Amino acid sequence: MSALSGPDAPGLSATTIIRLKTVWENEYKEWQDKDLSRKKYIYIWADGGYCNVRMDDKG
């Protein structure tokens, strides 16, 4: 979770969530006002997770 919240958010208290939400909303508003008409973007969206968990004592 620290990768998403950053170094200034060590815990996830209600105060921290409110502060982060405010920061993210402001960043989004700034992004919405950018002129992207002269730019080209290529993106890849990936979603998933992988866990290699052993349930026995073999190592």
Rank of each mutant, 00 (worst) to 15 (best):
Q32F: 02
N26F: 09
D47Q: 13
P10Q: 05
K29Y: 08
D47R: 10
T22K: 10
L20R: 01
L4F: 13
K39A: 15
Y43W: 11
D8K: 13
G59M: 15
K39H: 04
R54T: 09
M55F: 14
I18H: 00
I44W: 09
D33K: 15
G49I: 01
L4G: 14
M1H: 02
A14E: 09
W31A: 14
K58N: 08
L36C: 14
R19K: 10
Y41K: 11
Y43C: 13
G48D: 00
L4Y: 11
V23Q: 13
I44R: 12
P7S: 15
L20N: 01
L12M: 07
G59R: 15
V23S: 05
G6T: 01
N26V: 02
E27I: 03
K29D: 05
K39G: 03
S13D: 05
S13K: 00
A9W: 02
A3T: 04
N52A: 15
V53Y: 15
L36G: 11
G59K: 15
L12F: 02
T15V: 00
W24D: 02
E25H: 08
I18S: 12
G11P: 00
N52P: 03
S13M: 07
I44Y: 08
L36T: 10
W24E: 08
A3D: 08
S13N: 00
S5W: 05
Y43P: 03
V53D: 11
Y50D: 08
C51P: 01
W24Q: 08
L4A: 05
E30R: 09
V23R: 10
I18D: 09
W31H: 08
G59W: 14
R38E: 13
V53T: 09
K58P: 07
L20E: 06
E27Q: 11
N26Y: 09
G6D: 00
Y28T: 04
M1N: 04
L20S: 05
T22Y: 06
L4H: 02
W31K: 07
N26T: 10
I44V: 11
P10T: 01
W45G: 06
M1R: 04
L20A: 04
A3I: 06
T15C: 09
G11I: 06
L12D: 00
D47E: 13
D8S: 12
M55E: 06
M55K: 02
D33M: 11
L4C: 09
R19W: 03
S37Y: 12
S5V: 07
Q32G: 01
A46V: 08
S2D: 02
D35C: 10
Y28H: 05
Y28G: 02
L12C: 03
E27K: 03
